[in-house]
């Protein structure tokens, strides 16, 4: 049973479209597996939508629409309408193509939120395999991380945050056991040492703005950076 959920502020930012793609996808993957958060997201979206299209109205209800449009628009709205309706194109909803990825002979379905993201080559260290997701978000690194049974991530901390969403399997650390669907957000105050007895696949996001300022040890032993 899923025990760890994104906090409310994060869900709000998700609905507003204010999170980077990496974190947005993390929330979407979690919600895909978590009916509770799905419900919350649906409610917030409805409220935000209502407010968005009402507030503006309250803000400028003195003038009539045409005048308001002229006043706010440097573009020609009528022209834009003509332009749009001229096209008879319809966007068809393509059938969902399920994409898969294999780690050590095990095949996993890639979450829909990631289906159009570009995956990097696999890199291995011991029982860990990582594939970077190419999102071009500068100091934010996003990956799929696979841990073979009995594998673990050496004790580490991160500057900034570190998000793990469990896609398959389970792992445990000092704070307890995590299962499929769990949304685990840690900040720099956490230090942990996750171990997966039966193996698992995780979606991970970490921002490591101070990547290179941590001196020789960090650099010559770049295990933490390798993983996240």
């Amino acid at each position: 049973m899923i025990n760890h959920h994104p906090k409310f502020e994060l869900i709000q930012a998700f609905v507003n479209g204010d999170l980077p793609a990496s974190l947005s996808a993390g929330v979407a993957i979690h919600a895909d597996m978590c009916p509770v958060c799905q419900q919350t997201i649906a409610q917030i979206t409805e409220q935000v939508a209502e407010a968005s299209f009402e507030e503006e109205y309250l803000d400028r209800f003195i003038v009539d629409d045409i005048e308001a449009l002229d006043a706010v628009a440097v573009i020609d709205f009528d022209h834009m309408i003509d332009d749009i309706v001229e096209s008879s194109d319809i966007s068809v909803a393509l059938p969902k193509v399920e994409k898969t990825i294999s780690f050590n002979d095990k095949t996993y379905t890639i979450p829909t939120a990631l289906s159009n993201m570009e995956l990097g080559k696999h890199a291995h260290i011991g029982k860990l395999t990582r594939s970077r997701i190419q999102l071009n978000e500068n100091e934010i690194h996003t990956s799929l991380l696979h841990i073979q049974p009995g594998g673990g991530v050496p004790e580490h901390t991160h500057k900034g945050f570190e998000l793990t969403v469990l896609l398959e399997g389970s792992f445990h650390d000092e704070s307890g056991e995590y299962v499929k669907g769990d949304f685990i957000m840690l900040d720099s105050s956490h230090q942990h040492h996750p171990i997966s007895t039966n193996g698992c696949l995780c979606y991970t996001v970490a921002n490591d703005a101070l990547h290179f300022t941590q001196g020789i040890n960090k650099l010559l032993n770049p295990i933490g950076s390798f993983i996240y």
Binding site: S24, A25, A28, T112, A113, N116, M117
Partner: peptide, 9 residues
Amino acid sequence: DNLSDDIWP
């Protein structure tokens, strides 16, 4: 890369 429709269908 137009990822939004995958994240928010």
